Amino acid sequence: MNASQRRIEILSLLEKQMNPITARNLADTFQVSRQIIVGDIALLRAEGNDILSTPRGYLYGNKENIETGFTGKLVCQHTEEQARMELQLIVDNGGEIVDVEVEHPIYGLLSGILRIRTSHDVDEFIRDVKENRTKMLSSLTDGVHIHTIKCKDKESFEQIQNQLREAGILYS
């Protein structure tokens, strides 16, 4: 299989999947290196394909739009040690953390797709941050950041907002 055929197959796999596929899984499937897959994804994006990169792998398109519900944004501020509590409060109250955004003084708006829906996702995210010895985006802005939260209805969103306020995490 040549590189062009591989990219067609990668795109086909991503279009069919609702869950993220890691670069490692794609590399194993096509018997190439992970770096080759990263390059293939970059070329597919350059061709105009809507491929999202999440902490758990690649997704095709904005699949959040398939589901119904309420989506809102919350501005939060906390320390790195409070991150687990913040994320856990959101998922425990029926929310999905779609992404995180920070307003950087030089680069402007920086964002990262998270798609954290469950306690397991929270554990994986926190573990990945620690294992990779990396900092969260909010470390660039004194802990201030914005989350897009998706939940079943506005009442659930307001419950999440109240829980974060009570925990001292909601920015005011």
Rank of each mutant, 00 (worst) to 15 (best):
S4N: 14
Q5W: 01
R7K: 10
I8G: 13
I10R: 00
S12P: 06
L13K: 02
K16F: 12
P20G: 09
L26Y: 02
R34F: 01
I36N: 11
I37W: 00
I37V: 05
G39L: 10
G39F: 04
D40K: 03
D40M: 05
D40Y: 06
R45F: 12
E47I: 10
G48Q: 15
G48F: 12
N49R: 12
D50W: 06
D50Q: 09
L52T: 06
L52H: 01
L52W: 01
G57T: 00
N62T: 06
G72T: 11
K73Y: 09
H78V: 01
E81A: 14
E86Q: 13
I90Y: 03
D92W: 03
N93C: 15
G94E: 04
G95D: 04
I97A: 11
V98A: 13
V98M: 07
D99H: 05
V100W: 00
P105L: 08
Y107L: 13
L109H: 11
S111Q: 13
G112A: 02
L114W: 01
S119Y: 03
S119F: 08
H120G: 11
E124H: 09
D128F: 07
T134W: 01
K135T: 15
K135H: 05
M136A: 13
S139I: 03
L140E: 13
D142I: 05
I146Q: 12
H147F: 09
H147D: 13
K150N: 13
K152E: 15
D153V: 09
K154R: 14
E155I: 15
S156N: 04
E158D: 08
Q159S: 10
Q163E: 11
L164D: 03
L164K: 06
E166A: 15
